[in-house]
């Protein structure tokens, strides 16, 4: 894999906590790599797993899902649904032969610009290590194959 691989990552944020954490990271002039492109949802509960699949199918190498800490969701408990969907997504991806680490969930409160910065930086590094996302080839029956062994390397 080339040393110059720069992943493209789509990040979902919730309006109340993690988007504001991103704002705070900016206001405080913290630095993170430019690989992540953010989308604002009202709540992490809005995250339809289709969005993640579409992003990955459309060329993203990874997806970051962020929201308020458990117990701090602006809509009381919807981030627990995001948590469940995240686990489901990882399973689905693994079933499709894609490294489940390509979807990551991070809780960040409005005060945690530093945490978000750190998590993004780390995630970008991890995905750089994983390399570009390759969708496994479909076999004759249309079932996808497990990914090549690159993951374990």
């Amino acid at each position: 894999m080339s040393d110059h691989f720069e992943p493209v990552i789509i990040g979902f944020t919730c309006n109340w906590c993690s988007y504001r954490a991103a704002d705070l990271a900016g206001t405080a002039r913290m630095k993170y790599p430019p690989n992540v492109r953010l989308i604002r949802l009202m709540c992490s509960g809005r995250l339809d797993p289709t969005f993640v699949i579409k992003a990955l199918a459309g060329g993203a190498d990874a997806v970051l899902i962020t929201g308020c800490h458990p117990g701090e969701c602006h809509y009381i408990e919807q981030n627990y649904k995001a948590l469940r969907r995240h686990l489901l997504l990882r399973k689905t991806l693994a079933g499709l032969g894609i490294e489940p680490q390509r979807v990551k969930l991070v809780w960040a409160s409005a005060a945690e610009g530093a945490k978000l910065t750190h998590e993004i930086t780390q995630f970008v590094d991890e995905i750089r290590g994983l390399g570009p996302l390759h969708w496994p080839q479909s076999d004759a029956n249309g079932h996808s194959q497990p990914a090549e062994t690159e993951v374990t390397a």
Binding site: V8, I10, R37, I39, L41, M42, R46, D48, T50, F51, K54, A55, G58, G59, A60
Partner: peptide
């Protein structure tokens, strides 16, 4: 959902990925 419809979000993903 008004303001955050599937079409809006999917299109934004499309645009962010420069598709």
């Amino acid at each position: 959902g008004t303001g955050f419809s599937n079409e809006q979000i999917l299109s934004q993903i499309d645009g962010l990925l420069m598709l």
